[in-house]
Design a protein around this nucleic acid. Structure first.
Length: 809
RNA sequence: GGGCCCGUAGUUCAGCGGCUAGAACGUCUCCCUUACAAGGAGAAGGUCACCGGUUCAAGUCCGGUCGGGCCCACCA
């Protein structure tokens, strides 16, 4: 066989990727209703330009698992989706195209988004994923903003609305007064700002009508007009006597009640705190817990409302200054301490985030906490400890699921409101997907009041409202009963509380089943020092460059180096190791095929040599262990086992010993050669197959050089997983003596600084096997050590040493 | 502040109750042996973070301390 001297991944990898696609190697068989289906809820990456290393890491890991199941003969449903929905995409497009959504106007901006997503983002992203060697069926594609997804998302909304799970009510929303837009958590960042703790005087009204001063510390005096209550910690003896009494708010003089609440921190400020509607998160919790009135001090454009009386119309910062000045004058401000504190600001403009009242849509689910815990329990978590994060999240839930966003680019709510009575008009299901801004409501008159005027809902749904439906979206691409519920949800651990949790909720609410059987949670790729990679730190590694420099197989080999769920620091040296592994595979295969040219794979030799039985016995154990590891999604264990077996047992030991028989049938006998060929054939084949899920390209390349025609398969990835079962205790015992003798010989030569081919004049071997057994392998030892004469002595069972060796060079 | 994970060789990790604690990379020495110098052979290198406990026996189980990482929350 004439083989190229070197393997060139830069040429081979794209070649096979093209081959797989053209030959539909990873196609889901829609017609097959017999074969077990293995369906995967592939995470649709949020398209942010290019694939980053974290994606390469976790998508590689899921691909290992999927490829394994495919080789078990299952009908694999492995779609590919992208998530282009919501804030992240809006911001990316604004940056890419140098536009502002607000200035551009809604319809034009949405159009630009859709176009950019389709013609630039998705193609770039998909090609990166293909280059990584992901074995998705790319013909099963969805994007969370495409019509198919919109339809399913809107259908979900309508179903939940009709079943009474959705409601609309006023709720605080995060708002940037400068940009005049609703914003989400991901758009905020912490910023250290200088501020002041102001101790101000509230007048407590005693039972007899007299007033007592109570000092309250605040950083936000401008919210005084929205003050609705005062809280102290229930254990705080200083303030217990005020329970239920009222106090007058400085400057505004409206009366608010004083109540105990354990969220008040006795250590902070004066230990007693004012609660203003929409001051911060805790304020909102208090508002909800104590059913306090909602008061708005700040309007959408960041100015004071009418509630602020004479301060109305002032900007927040001016109002703060004015009120402080006024309180100083009237003696209501006792002291001012400068502090530094972290505040939530809008990352784009640095403005402090405010909370604003707006009508929002919610999915009601707080009543389902117990069920949610049970749903989580009935999932198979890999690794198991990730389940805890889900449980803690559910236990900590305090709000229903808010699904509306004051944004442009997202799935529209299929909803209109009656202009007269605010009645909700829901789209007709047959019209989905709809855009209420463009489309007409499905009725001519309001069923409640008869009015014929409607207003469209302009909010869009939050990303998670749609991406929590990926199992249904993906399953909807084919008409096959076996696809949903799915077999596997692979994803990273950071979004257990978002994507995973929300998907469980939706699947349960709609279909009363868990969306999948197994969840496999991967960790994060980190920089070489174990830190998170981020653009601002400048420690980002581009997977595209690594693939170009080494290979996709090498990058995947690195990704297989950590246990599922563990974070893994990126080290370029690990890619060198991966690249070396492909070279070793190539070279060893070249050697094997050279000696297998005249081998008929259907042949089973009448008698197998001890050393061949030895390697096949070891191999059997590796296959058994690796299969079990893969079934538990422990691909890193498989990788480690196969790597060690291949490099050491197979290459370093077995090939060196069997070589002589393969080259010299005249001296060693043709039966002995045939036996060696048998060992070679099955060992290498199994190694290739076991490493194929991790290194799909080199294994495919090598497989096609020889095995593909023997097994009549068009790809190693749809060949059968190895199943050899030839455990052989006797051979392992005798084989071990051979290995030890060879190792002693190597050490002796190394210590003498001579070449390994230097002959050994005489060798004495002592071992706990019989002379007859030793005779079976004496020629192997001679061949591998160049020993001319070997003397053997059997060690008795009582002997302390199990092996002894003396060598005369 | 809450949660989860992790502290084993210079580095990245295996080992998770029982022989002398392993691998890869790196280092050092030697060897171009007809698959492979991106190779082969050998060697050096570890009080398994610290303290206490359970056990005949502990990197391995339990408790605590310290350190690292990530996620979530909070910041009157």
């Amino acid at each position: 066989m004439d083989l190229p001297k070197r393997y060139d991944p830069a040429e081979a990898e794209p070649k096979w990727q093209k081959y797989w696609e053209e030959n539909e190697v990873f196609s889901f068989d829609r017609e097959d209703s017999q074969r077990e289906v293995y369906s995967v809820d592939t995470p649709p990456p949020t398209v942010s330009g290019k694939m980053h290393l974290g994606h390469a890491f976790s998508y590689s890991q899921q691909d290992f698992m999927v490829r394994f199941h495919r080789m078990l003969g299952k009908n694999v449903f492995y779609p590919f989706g992208t998530d282009n929905n919501g804030v992240a995409t809006e911001r990316l497009i604004e940056k890419m195209k140098k536009v502002k959504a607000k200035k551009m106007g809604r319809s034009e901006f949405v159009k630009l988004c859709l176009e950019t997503v389709k013609t630039e983002l998705i193609p770039q992203y998909t090609s990166d994923m293909k280059r990584l060697g992901l074995s998705c069926d790319f013909s099963l594609f969805y994007d969370t903003i495409d019509e198919h997804s919109q339809k399913i998302s809107q259908q979900s909304f309508i179903d939940l609305y009709k079943s009474g799970r959705e409601y609309r009510k006023d709720a605080p929303t995060m708002w940037c007064p400068t940009c005049e837009t609703g914003i989400s958590q991901v758009e905020c960042e912490d910023k250290e700002l200088d501020s002041h703790f102001n101790d101000i005087v509230f007048k407590l009204i005693e039972d007899d009508g007299s007033e007592t001063d109570v000092l309250i510390a605040t950083t936000r005096p401008e919210l005084l007009p929205a003050c609705v209550a005062i809280f102290y910690h229930p254990d705080d003896t200083r303030y217990q006597k005020y329970n239920g009494k009222k106090a007058k708010v400085p400057l505004f003089n409206h009366e608010v009640v004083i109540l105990p609440d354990k969220r008040a921190d006795p250590e902070k400020g004066t230990g007693i705190v004012m609660c203003c509607t929409f001051g911060d998160q805790t304020d909102m919790e208090w508002q909800k817990a104590h059913d306090l009135p909602i008061k708005l001090a700040i309007s959408a454009d960041g100015k004071m409302t009418a509630l602020a009386g004479k301060y109305e119309g002032m900007k927040i910062s001016d109002a703060r200054k004015a009120m402080i000045a006024d309180m100083k004058e009237t003696g209501l401000l006792v002291s001012q301490k400068p502090i530094k504190h972290a505040v939530n600001v809008h990352e784009r403009c640095g403005t402090e985030v405010e909370f604003l009242k707006a009508k929002q849509w919610f999915i009601k689910y707080l009543d389902l906490k117990e069920e949610m815990i049970a749903w989580g329990k009935s999932l198979n978590w890999y690794p198991d400890h990730m389940r805890v994060r889900y449980d803690h999240w559910v236990n900590g839930l305090q709000w229903d699921w808010m699904i509306s966003r004051q944004r442009y680019f997202g799935v529209p709510f299929p909803v209109w409101y009656c202009k007269e009575c605010d009645e909700v008009i829901v789209a007709d299901e047959k019209d989905l997907p709809v855009d209420p801004i463009k489309d007409k409501a499905p009725v001519d008159a309001c069923p409640k009041c008869g009015s014929s005027e409607f207003v469209a809902e302009e909010d869009v749904m939050d990303t998670w409202a749609t991406s929590s439906l990926t199992p249904q979206i993906a399953a909807g691409l084919v008409d096959h009963k076996g696809v949903y519920p799915m077999s596997l949800r692979p994803q990273a651990h950071d979004i257990i509380t978002f994507w995973l949790f929300n998907t469980v909720v939706k699947s349960r609410l709609h279909n009363e089943v868990n969306p999948w059987k197994d969840v496999a949670i991967s960790g994060h790729a980190q920089d070489p020092h174990g830190k998170k990679m981020s653009k601002s730190k400048g420690n980002v590694v581009e997977p595209q460059k690594m693939i170009a420099k080494y290979s996709s197989d090498a990058l995947r080999f690195w990704a297989a180096g950590s246990k599922l769920g563990d974070d893994l620091p990126f080290q370029e040296k690990d890619l060198v190791t991966g690249a070396k592994f492909t070279t070793k595979l190539w070279n060893a295969s070249k050697f094997c095929f050279m000696h297998l040219e005249d081998f008929d794979s259907s042949t089973v030799p009448k008698k197998l040599e001890i050393v061949d039985r030895w390697i096949l016995s070891k191999l059997s154990r590796i296959i058994k262990d690796s299969t079990a590891s893969f079934e538990r999604y422990e691909y890193s264990k498989t990788k480690l086992d196969v790597e060690g077996f291949f490099w050491h047992d197979f290459c370093d030991d077995y090939l060196e010993i069997v070589k002589d028989r393969l080259y010299n049938p005249d001296r060693r006998g043709s039966d002995a050669r045939l036996s060696g060929q048998y060992g070679l054939y099955h060992s290498l084949n199994a190694v290739l197959k076991m490493i194929a899920p991790i290194m799909p390209h080199i294994s495919e390349e090598v497989y096609h050089l020889y095995y593909a025609s023997q097994e009549e398969k068009k790809s190693i990835h749809i060949s059968s997983w190895p199943s050899l079962d030839m455990p052989d205790e006797e051979a392992e015992k005798i084989g071990q003596v051979v290995i030890e003798a060879v190792e002693h010989a190597r050490r002796a030569k190394s210590e003498k600084n001579v070449s390994l081919k230097t002959p050994i004049v005489q060798m004495f071997v002592k071992a706990k096997i019989t002379p007859e057994e030793f005779d079976l392998v004496v020629d192997e030892i001679k061949a591998a050590t160049k020993a001319e004469v070997i003397e053997f002595e059997q060690l008795g069972e009582e002997s302390e040493a199990s092996f002894g060796c003396e060598i005369e060079l």
